[in-house]
Amino acid sequence: MAFHEIRFPANLSFGSVGGPERRTEIVTLANGFEERNTPWAHSRRRYDAGVGLRSLDDVAVLIAFFEARAGQLHGFRWKDWSDFRSCAPSATPGPEDQLVGIGDGETAVFRLQKTYVSGLQSYVRPILKPVAGTVAVALAGDPKVEGVEFDVDVETGEISFAVPPDLGVRITAGFEFDVPVRFDTDAIQTSVASFQAGDVPTVPVVEIRL
């Protein structure tokens, strides 16, 4: 299998249903208490690409994209319209949105990440597929120039500095990003009659680990 660095048509993913999924194992003890554990360090997202289809032309685009990916065989990029920025959905990404590391004077490569905070708890999500041209980086609040002071690998989510950041320097970044996914079915069933009647096909899409 391979990963194709192409985004599922954003106009078709707009309006899709989906979000993060967790895997929790629960054992109820004899005294009624529970033991809860999870084998997953990170959540996994699922979507339905069929919801965004609005015309037969959209169906044709979907089928072409599905065939080019050979069904479930190859991964691709997906824009999650409810969570695709380092900041709030209504804001514009800035270079101080997310903390991605602390300089040690030696390390020059850091991975983009997004932190979700609720109360005293937080979750750090690795960002593997930033969108080209959207990544802004700052060292201790000082914005840096892409292509001169740092580079971005949009296939891995890594940022590389020309000079390793000094010891204790906060490395922050703002960006837009896609989710690496694949189709979760090897068959798409469509009907002109049913589609015209408002019955759209179900096209499951699932996030993949890279």
Results as ranks from 00 to 15, higher is better:
Phe195His: 08
Ile208Gly: 07
Ala70Thr: 13
Gln113Asn: 13
Ala132His: 05
Leu29Asn: 14
Ser86Ile: 07
Lys129Asp: 09
Thr115Val: 09
Ala88Val: 05
Leu62Phe: 04
Ala162Glu: 13
Glu25Trp: 06
Ser86Arg: 03
Pro39Ile: 02
Thr134Trp: 03
Glu5Ile: 10
Glu67Ala: 12
Pro20Asp: 00
Val61Tyr: 04
Ile188Gly: 06
Arg170Ile: 09
Lys129Pro: 04
Asp57His: 12
Tyr116Ile: 01
Glu67Thr: 14
Thr190Ser: 07
Ser16Ile: 09
Asp58Lys: 05
Thr38Asn: 02
Glu96Cys: 14
Val181His: 05
Ala197Ile: 07
Val181Gln: 01
Leu73Pro: 05
Val206His: 12
Gly103Tyr: 07
Gly101His: 06
Ser86Trp: 00
His4Lys: 14
Arg182Glu: 09
His4Asn: 12
Asp104Trp: 01
Pro130Leu: 01
Gly157Ile: 06
Ser160Asp: 11
Arg69Trp: 11
Thr202Trp: 15
Leu210Ile: 08
Ile127Thr: 00
Ser118Gly: 05
Ala68Thr: 06
Gln72Cys: 14
Glu207Ser: 00
Val181Ala: 03
Pro93Arg: 10
Ile159Lys: 09
Ile208Lys: 00
Gly141Asp: 05
Thr107Cys: 09
Gln189Pro: 05
Ile63Thr: 11
Lys114Trp: 09
Arg209Gly: 08
Ala68His: 06
Pro204Gly: 11
Asn31His: 07
Phe3Arg: 07
Pro180Ser: 01
Arg85Asp: 10
Thr156Asn: 03
Val27Ser: 11
Gly71Thr: 07
Leu56Thr: 10
Ala193Pro: 03
Lys144Thr: 01
Arg36Pro: 00
Pro39Ser: 08
Ala41Met: 12
Val131Ser: 04
Gly103Asp: 02
Ala91Thr: 08
Trp78Tyr: 13
Gly15Pro: 14
Ser191Asn: 01
Pro93Val: 09
Ser160Arg: 15
Ala2Asn: 05
Ala70Gly: 07
Ile63Asp: 07
Arg45Asn: 06
Tyr116Val: 05
Leu120Cys: 05
Thr172Pro: 00
Ala187Cys: 10
Asn11Tyr: 11
Leu12Trp: 09
Phe110Ala: 02
Val59Gln: 11
Phe8Gln: 06
Val51Asn: 09
Ile188Glu: 08
Gln113Phe: 02
Pro20Ser: 00
Trp81Leu: 03
Arg85Glu: 06
Pro9Val: 02
Glu155Asp: 13
Gly133Glu: 00
Ala140Lys: 13
Gln121Ala: 11
Asp58Ile: 04
Asp104Ile: 00
Leu12Phe: 08
Glu67Leu: 14
Gly119Ile: 02
